[in-house]
Design a protein around this nucleic acid. Structure first.
Lengths: 145, 145
DNA sequence: TCTAATAGTTAGCAATGCTAACTATTGCAA
DNA sequence: TTGCAATAGTTAGCATTGCTAACTATTAGA
């Protein structure tokens, strides 16, 4: 049986693990030819399955509007997203991934996640489902953060 | 019962959760008055319990020498680390945290981790120990990455 | 109607990452 | 022993991504 740990200790360990996990995965991001911030924003757009406003996208990515504004502008220049004015509100934009953006995201994501998936394949089925449950827990934790 | 997921799906979810977790915790880092890269490097120095060379520190942090060189120079200016030449090799440096650096790290870490710990307190004991087991799994995964 | 709120942009700064090219030592081999 | 290649670190210059402050344009409401 595992030693009983305090929430502080678990938080500390979790923080450390998250840092080091991403640090390793960062290497794979390079092959996408697009930065991690753009890749992540593009991912939100692709999986949203409907257009998002700039503010909504900034919110989802936990960055400020000017930061997302710049990312979206760059992605539009690269033909990864298309921008149209909202029909109801001329101030607002509707941002969608282009076909090219969608293709790039899926390919990039595959490359990125594959190196992690390869290691996860060595885990047993029960370990994998345990990880999955923990991920579910963490999503709630993050929401309350 | 949870739907059976592929390693790829779990890897993807894990990647996403790690990103968003750190994004939330980043807010707390601000109170340290020191950037996350420096905080993390300082953490390595403090917990190493012996001096490290620049290359060793860069390696531990998974960054290139010039990047670490700049971080270390800034930390020395702020009196967070002390730098001495190695007695055996005049090219190499020995980097240690100062008292001030150690204090700042521990205080910063506490602040940083506390916001996460606060949310984790609302989890049940079984959920907490489940998280803990997953963290153990992940440490092995990261090592193999 | 006019004013306050909202959506987004622009400008300018800071932190952190990189590569290329440099200096200074070290160590090995001729 | 000398001289060259390898090693440790720095400097310069650039890209990305984050921020705040200050701006424009549109909308909505008093």
């Amino acid at each position: 049986m595992a030693k009983k740990s305090t929430p502080f200790e678990v938080a500390d360990a979790l923080h450390s693990v998250a840092i080091h996990l991403l640090r390793r995965l960062r290497v794979q991001d390079l092959a996408s030819g697009i930065g991690p911030a753009k890749l992540s924003a593009l991912s939100v757009l692709v999986f949203a399955r409907h257009p998002l406003s700039l503010a909504a996208l900034a919110d989802a990515e936990q960055v400020k509007n000017p930061t997302m504004s710049r990312l979206v502008a760059a992605m539009e220049r690269d033909d990864l997203v298309s921008i149209t004015a909202s029909s109801e509100d001329a101030r607002a934009m509707e941002i969608r991934p282009t076909k090219k953006g969608e293709r790039l995201l899926l390919a990039g994501k595959e490359r990125r996640v594959n190196s992690l998936a390869k290691v996860l394949q060595d885990l047993g089925e029960s370990e994998l489902s345990q990880l999955e449950q923990s991920i579910g827990l963490l999503r709630n934790v993050i929401r309350r953060l």
